[in-house]
């Protein structure tokens, strides 16, 4: 294909994406700064930010906490599964099947299933015949266990499939090379497999973190009502009867975008430092 038509096709895809991202982000920032009021005159102010300032620290803490815990679990479980998939054999086929089945389940359905499984009157409590009063507060409890597990379960499958896909295309020959150079399985894992997997692990980890930070359904369904994660707070404020809270919802959304941007920047910094990326 000549450069002209190729550029045109790229533009066809890029222009709508740019309009949505830049336009949507600009609209949100403008609304959070009082420049696009639903009623009354436009006036530059940080009132929306000061309006949610008292709740922001606890919301940021719980959102980041959930994202860190979920991402850590997802990367550990998904990364291990990826290594097992690359090793091949029957277990690899089972893991690929499980991963493929898991990523197709919507988070909302997953959250409902986790709730039915982990609640004090859920399947596990009934199976083990534990009275609700003795069952730990996994759903709606102080440690957001059900929320973290739901995200970790779903995102571990995503991490496993992406990392395994990256590794299988390039690692097999390097693994053979390391073996004939005298490296045993553990050494190959430490000196070859993990360093080569690092870029895809960093990328999938960053995607998982940003997704977890920005999505609200799971925390809304399985979490407690206070402190609210940022995403839940933003949706609640946006949907309130009083239209004057919309700038505050936009302000919370801007905070989420800022945190996500920081994480993305950190991920790309790590990637640039990784030898494989260079």
């Amino acid at each position: 294909m000549t450069p002209g038509p190729a550029r045109f096709l790229v533009l066809v895809a890029a222009i709508p994406a740019a309009i949505v991202v830049v336009g949507g982000l600009g609209f949100t920032v403008a609304q959070s700064l009082g420049l696009l009021p639903l009623v009354g005159p436009a006036r530059l102010s940080v009132d929306a930010y000061t309006g949610v300032a008292s709740e922001l620290p606890s919301s940021i803490a719980v959102s980041v906490g959930i994202a860190v815990a979920s991402t850590t679990l997802a990367v550990l479980v998904g990364g291990t599964a990826a290594v097992l998939i690359v090793a091949g054999g029957r277990l690899a086929r089972v893991l690929i099947g499980l991963g493929a089945a898991t990523v197709t389940v919507p988070h909302l359905i997953g959250a409902a299933a986790i709730g039915l499984l982990l609640a004090d009157s859920g399947l596990l409590a009934r199976t083990f015949q534990v009275p609700p009063t003795d069952w730990p507060s996994l759903v709606g409890g102080p440690w957001w266990v059900a929320v973290i597990l739901e995200y970790a379960w779903k995102e571990a499958a995503f991490v496993a499939l992406v990392v395994a896909g990256t590794l299988t295309t390039r690692v097999a020959r390097f693994d053979e090379t390391a073996a004939v150079l005298g490296a045993n399985r553990a050494t190959r894992l430490r000196l070859v497999l993990l360093p080569l997997a690092a870029p895809s692990v960093i990328l999938t980890g960053a995607i998982t973190f940003i997704y977890t930070l920005g999505s609200y359904e799971v925390a809304w369904l399985l979490g407690r009502t206070y402190p609210e994660p940022l995403s839940v707070m933003a949706v609640r404020l946006y949907g309130e009867v009083s239209l004057t809270t919309r700038p505050e919802a936009a302000a919370v959304a801007v905070v989420i975008v800022t945190l996500s941007t920081l994480v993305a920047a950190a991920a790309f910094t790590l990637l640039r430092r990784s030898a494989v990326w260079r």
């Binding site: 090379t177 390391a178 005298g182 490296a183 045993n184 050494t187 070859v192 080569l196 030898a275 494989v276």
Partner: peptide, 16 residues
């Protein structure tokens, strides 16, 4: 190995 320098590639069997 793309994540290792030239010298570290040659040193790989010794590290292994």
């Amino acid at each position: 190995f793309p994540h290792l320098s030239v010298l570290d590639n040659v040193a790989f069997p010794l590290r292994a």
